[in-house]
Design a binder for these strands. Structure first.
Length: 498
RNA sequence: GGUCCUGUGGCCGAGUGGCUAGGCAGAGCUCUGCAAAAGCUCCUACACCAGUUCGAAUCUGGUCGGGACCUCCA
């Protein structure tokens, strides 16, 4: 089998992946800020890294996957802010930060479950690691790379850049950063505009605040990831992932902090997913083009013609390489929906075919070698920087073979016992275990199965007597209920829920 | 303005210098009581201009277009 190669953002090239401790992989992925609802854009990194997590595990690694919850910072809930300003005094009418955080954390977990993502090994919260963050800031101050002003602490980028490569990851040039003339609030405290906050002084009315050696305040954005990654994965770990928009300043700053604190570069492989765009534009609050996940699942959004199943979104994302932008549209999602159905139906049909029907020798040598090659390429493509799109393309090339076997226009014995087994095993591993796809039909209970079998039997009898009025009645009325009944070759019938 | 990415058929998208993925949509045929599904076949594109090469969607330079980051945005 070929070696796994990953594109490393910091070296800008594909490198052979080798973990620090053989057989073990430490992976940190920047998690959500739970001050609002997740949208389609958020789905991309979590699905991408879920597949990476699953694949690394499949390769035999014990993976510790850490994904944080950013629940500290300056939070305001939309709509409730105004309410607060009317200065209601009652406790219950005021914004309670933890209530807000809990609400969106729950919603996030629910959405991730819908996508069938595996929960991370550790999901630390920023508020649960204030102590670690303060310790880290202290160390940086002691090392002389941070300074305190009015209860806030800033990282001294200029000093760091004198001996380290600040900007290496993001391709930023330190001189340009130092020259930036942008005027923002609170900037006057900093020695230099490029400096970033490690700790921020909080005004008394600020809703989230903790005691620190520098007074009451809250941690800077970047330090939380550094502190939690260090705590759970060590001073140096294998993979750090996140969206490309986090390259700068977030990840660049993480490198600086951790390097000063732990005297080593924190991350071996930086992996960044690209953005989901809508009409060519990144999906984001500031562009006013956000489609929330709840809206996507319900279809309740002006841009959506209908509701889309979470699995459709997952498949949609896997059809593209993770480092390419992915353009959203109704049409594209509709295409994914149909494509997924075609793949899933074939996958289910494959599972029902009997391996005993094949022999040691293949009766169709050409098909045998074609199918074998297509299946064996799964690993090769995935090892090439997780090319899920190419694996799926190969699967689709096999779909007609499976469907023909089901229709008996190609005998199962066209393939050798060995290759047929390979096909069945690998489809299961790749479709379910690695790509994490699952059935779109939620109703799979045995009573319904029984009722359907009864209707199918009655319809078969009617058809046998050429009583098409009855047979059509059954099929049409079921269709009205959203159950599609199909006649198959040989008189069998199959059904699924639309 | 600075740094970087990108431009593929009606749509979404893979693409490692030659063998020109895949999905969806569209057309025809087969199967079929009808329908649906399925199978087979067709539609063969790489923004533009120059260059390198026997050969370029792929490499180089330029032009034009789109985008990301430089704002606590995945």
């Amino acid at each position: 089998m070929s070696q796994l190669k990953v594109y490393n953002s910091i070296t800008r090239q594909k490198e052979v992946f080798k973990s620090i401790t053989p057989g073990h992989v430490g992976m940190y992925v920047c998690g959500p800020t739970v001050s609002g609802e997740s949208h389609l854009g958020h789905a991309r990194p979590y699905i991408t890294f879920d597949v990476i997590y699953r694949y690394l595990t499949f390769l035999g690694n014990k993976v510790r996957y850490v994904r944080n919850i950013t629940d500290a910072g300056h939070f305001e809930e939309e709509g409730r802010e105004a309410e607060d300003k009317i200065s209601k005094k009652a406790v219950l009418e005021k914004l309670e930060p933890m209530e807000l955080v809990q609400k969106y954390t729950n919603l996030f977990h629910w959405a991730m479950a819908q996508f069938n993502t595996i929960p991370p090994s550790i999901e630390p919260t920023a508020t649960g690691h204030i102590v670690e963050q303060i310790e880290m800031i202290k160390k940086i101050i002691e090392a002389g790379y941070a300074y305190e002003v009015n209860g806030s602490v800033y990282f001294d980028v200029k000093k760091y850049a004198a001996s380290h490569k600040y900007g290496k990851l993001s391709g930023r040039i330190i001189e340009d950063l130092l020259e930036t003339t942008r005027e923002l609030e609170g900037q006057e405290e900093k020695r230099d505009t490029a400096d970033f906050a490690l700790w921020k002084n909080a005004a008394p009315e600020h809703i989230m605040r903790w005691q620190s050696p520098w007074g009451a305040g809250f941690p800077g954005w970047h330090i939380e990831c550094s502190a939690m990654a260090t705590k759970y994965l060590g001073a140096q770990f294998d993979i750090h992932g996140g969206g490309m928009d986090l390259l700068f300043p977030h990840h660049e700053s993480e490198i600086a902090q951790s390097t000063i604190c732990n005297h080593t570069a924190p991350v071996r492989y930086w992996i960044h997913n690209n953005m989901i765009t809508i009409n060519g534009r990144k999906m984001g609050k500031s562009y006013n083009n956000v489609i929330k996940l709840t809206e996507l699942f319900s279809g309740d959004h002006p841009l959506l013609e209908k509701a889309f199943h979470p699995m459709t979104i997952r498949f949609f994302i896997l059809q593209t390489h993770y480092r390419s932008t992915l353009d959203f549209s109704n049409e594209a999602l509709l295409a994914s929906e149909k494509g997924l159905k075609r793949l899933w139906d074939a996958y289910e049909n494959l599972g029902k075919l009997k391996q005993e029907d094949s022999l040691q020798e293949a009766s169709d040598a050409g098909l045998e070698s074609k199918v074998k090659k297509l299946v064996e390429e799964f690993d090769e493509f995935m090892n090439d920087d997780f090319s899920t799109a190419k694996v799926l393309a190969n699967m689709f090339e096999i779909v007609p073979v499976i469907n023909s076997m089901k229709d008996k226009t190609i005998p199962v014995s066209a393939l050798s016992k060995q290759t047929f087994g390979l096909l069945q095993r690998n489809f299961k591993i790749w479709v379910e275990d690695i790509f994490g796809l699952k059935s779109v039909n939620e109703a799979d209970n045995s009573k319904l199965q029984g009722v359907m079998q009864l209707l199918i039997d009655i319809r078969k009898e009617a058809k046998g007597k050429k009583d098409f009025v009855t047979s059509d009645k059954i099929r049409n009325q079921l269709a009205q209920l959203g159950i599609i009944l199909k006649d198959e070759k040989g008189g069998d019938m199959s059904w699924n829920i639309d």
